Simulated scan of single mutants.
Amino acid sequence: MLVSDLPNSYQEVFKTSRGAVYQCDASNRLILAFWDTFTPMSSRDFAQFRRMVDTVDVRQMALSTDAADDVEILTPPRSERCYVLTLCEVIHLRELLGGAQAMLDLNSLLRECGCRLS
């Protein structure tokens, strides 16, 4: 699926040069677009996957000469997808997920304040 082929119900939450996170109000899901794949997740699964990505020891990956530390394998909750990530990809995914979470938090704060978003 190409970004241009996304349903109208998908609203962009946050985007980087490496991917994007969309929100679908129709299905109440967040969609992670990363590596030319689209992975739908509940907000709870999204938060859990973000914590998973944040706990990757990038320092260990960077400093280790052991081949086992060259990649990190992560599977989003309740998903058949598996990400095999290099150090740079872990950092890009952290940036994407962190930015999306910040935008979701900002949206929640604005709704609590009674502000209307267009």
Rank of each mutant, 00 (worst) to 15 (best):
F14H: 15
T75Y: 01
L32P: 06
P7W: 01
C82M: 09
A33F: 06
T65L: 14
P76I: 03
C24V: 06
E12W: 01
D45P: 00
C24S: 14
A26Q: 04
A67N: 04
Q23L: 10
S79C: 11
M103R: 13
A68S: 14
A68G: 14
A67P: 00
S79L: 10
A62D: 03
R18L: 09
R81D: 08
L106M: 07
E12H: 06
R94V: 08
L6Y: 04
S27A: 12
D54K: 12
L109V: 09
P40Y: 01
Y10V: 00
M41V: 00
D105P: 00
L74A: 01
M61D: 08
D69F: 15
A20D: 02
V21P: 01
V84Q: 10
V21F: 03
T39D: 02
R81Y: 02
Y22T: 00
M61E: 06
R18V: 00
P76V: 06
S118M: 13
T86W: 08
V90S: 11
Q101V: 04
V58M: 05
L74T: 03
D36Y: 10
A67M: 10
S79G: 05
F14Y: 13
L93R: 10
S64A: 14
L104I: 15
D105N: 12
V58P: 01
T37E: 10
I31C: 02
M103H: 07
V58I: 15
G98I: 02
L104K: 12
S42D: 08
L32M: 03
M41P: 00
A62Y: 15
C115T: 12
S79R: 03
F46W: 09
V21A: 04
T16A: 03
A47Q: 15
C82S: 05
Y83I: 05
V58K: 04
M1I: 07
C113A: 11
L97H: 09
V71Y: 12
D45K: 02
L104A: 05
S108V: 07
N8C: 05
N107R: 15
S64H: 14
I91E: 12
E112D: 11
S42H: 04
Q23V: 11
S4N: 08
S108H: 11
L106N: 09
A62V: 06
A20S: 12
V3T: 13
S64W: 12
L117H: 08
L117I: 12
F14R: 06
L96C: 06
S9T: 13
